[in-house]
C-alpha cells in the first residue's frame, strides 16, 4: 500500500507538471483534470491506509520533468499509470481498485491522443509574457515563485494529512477550503514558472511538517507565515507595478486572498481551544 500511495503521489505531481508545461489549451485542460483525478485517487488510497491502520508518509522519489517535447512527458506519464495498475493488488477495497483501474485505463488511452508540442517551460529565459521587468524585479519574482510554489505544495500535503486524521467536521471544512485555495495558488504559480521557463518540481516535504505535534502551534505559526506572504505579495506588486498592471493586480489579488486564510486559521484555533484539546 505504501508503494501504491507513493507512486500515485508521483503520478499526480508529474501530471500536474505536464499540465503546466503544455501550451495547447485543450492539452492543458485535460492534463489538469487528469492530475485532479490522480489527486483524488491519492486521498482515497490514503483513507484506506488510515482505516487499516497502516503507517505511511509522503516521501517520494525525485520526478524528472525536463523534456523538450510534451510527448516524452506523456510517455513517462503512461509508464507511471501502468506502474500504479500493477500495484493496485495491495488494496483490499474492491470498489476502489476497480474505479482506479478503469480511470487509469482511460487516462492512458486519452493521454496517448494529446497532440505533441515543443516544451518551453525550461528555457530559463525568465521573461513573463512580453514584459521587461528589469533584473531586480525578475529576481524577486523568481524567488517568490520558487518559495511559494513549494509552500503551496507543502500546505496541500499538511492540510490533507491533518484532514485524513481528523474526525471534527468544523475543522474538516476549514482544511478542505485551505486545500482548494492552495491548489489554486499552486496552479497559478506553476503556470507563471512555466511561462518564464523556470518550471521545477516542489521538493519533498519532510515528515515532521505534516505529522504535527501541536495543531494549535501549527495554526499559529501558519498565521504568521500567511502575514509574511501578504507582505511579500505587497512588495512584489509594488516592484512590478510600473511595468505591468496585470501582474501587480494579480499579486494584490493573492494578497487579499490570504486575509480569508488567516481568518479561517484563527477560527480553527478558536474552535480547537473551545473543544478543550
Amino acid at each position: 500500500m505504501k508503494r501504491l500511495l507513493q507512486k500515485t503521489h508521483e503520478a499526480w505531481l508529474a501530471t500536474q507538471m505536464a499540465a503546466f508545461m503544455a501550451r495547447n489549451t485543450e492539452s492543458k485542460r485535460w492534463l489538469n483534470e487528469a492530475a485532479m483525478i490522480l489527486w483524488r485517487h491519492f486521498t482515497w488510497i490514503e483513507h484506506e491506509m488510515v482505516v487499516r491502520g497502516i503507517e505511511y508518509d509522503y516521501d517520494r522519489e525525485t520526478i524528472p520533468i525536463k523534456v523538450e517535447r510534451l510527448s516524452v512527458m506523456i510517455a513517462d506519464l503512461n509508464r507511471r499509470y501502468g506502474e500504479i495498475e500493477l500495484l493496485l493488488g495491495a488494496s483490499e477495497d474492491a470498489a476502489l481498485k476497480e474505479r482506479i483501474a478503469h480511470d487509469l485505463e482511460y487516462l492512458r488511452f486519452a493521454a496517448g491522443r494529446l497532440p505533441d508540442e515543443t516544451v518551453r517551460a525550461f528555457s530559463m529565459e525568465r521573461r513573463y509574457k512580453d514584459l521587461d521587468l528589469g533584473k531586480e524585479a525578475t529576481d524577486a519574482l523568481t524567488l517568490f515563485l520558487f518559495e511559494e510554489s513549494y509552500k503551496e505544495y507543502e500546505l496541500i500535503l499538511i492540510y490533507n494529512y491533518l484532514r485524513a486524521h481528523n474526525d471534527d467536521t468544523f475543522l474538516d471544512r476549514i482544511f478542505g477550503i485551505l486545500i482548494d485555495e492552495s491548489f489554486f495558488h499552486l496552479r497559478s504559480f506553476g503556470e507563471m514558472m512555466a511561462e518564464m521557463g523556470i518550471l521545477g518540481v516542489p521538493r519533498v516535504v519532510h515528515e515532521s511538517l505534516y505529522k504535527v505535534e501541536s495543531l494549535e502551534r501549527f495554526l499559529l505559526d501558519g498565521i504568521d507565515e500567511e502575514i509574511a506572504a501578504k507582505e511579500q505579495c505587497r512588495e512584489l506588486s509594488q516592484a512590478v507595478a510600473a511595468e505591468s498592471e496585470e501582474l501587480a493586480k494579480f499579486f494584490d489579488f493573492i494578497n487579499n486572498q490570504e486575509n480569508y486564510h488567516i481568518a479561517l486559521m484563527k477560527e480553527a484555533v478558536e474552535h480547537y481551544r473551545a473543544e478543550g484539546r
Binding site: D59, T62, M124, R126, T138, L143, R203, V204
Partner: peptide, 22 residues
Amino acid sequence: MIQQVDREILDHMIDPKNYGSM
C-alpha cells in the same frame, strides 16, 4: 537570503542536488 539570481543559483533552485532522504 539570495539577493541575485544567476544561472548557477537558478540551476540549484530548479534541481537541488542530493535532495531527499536516504
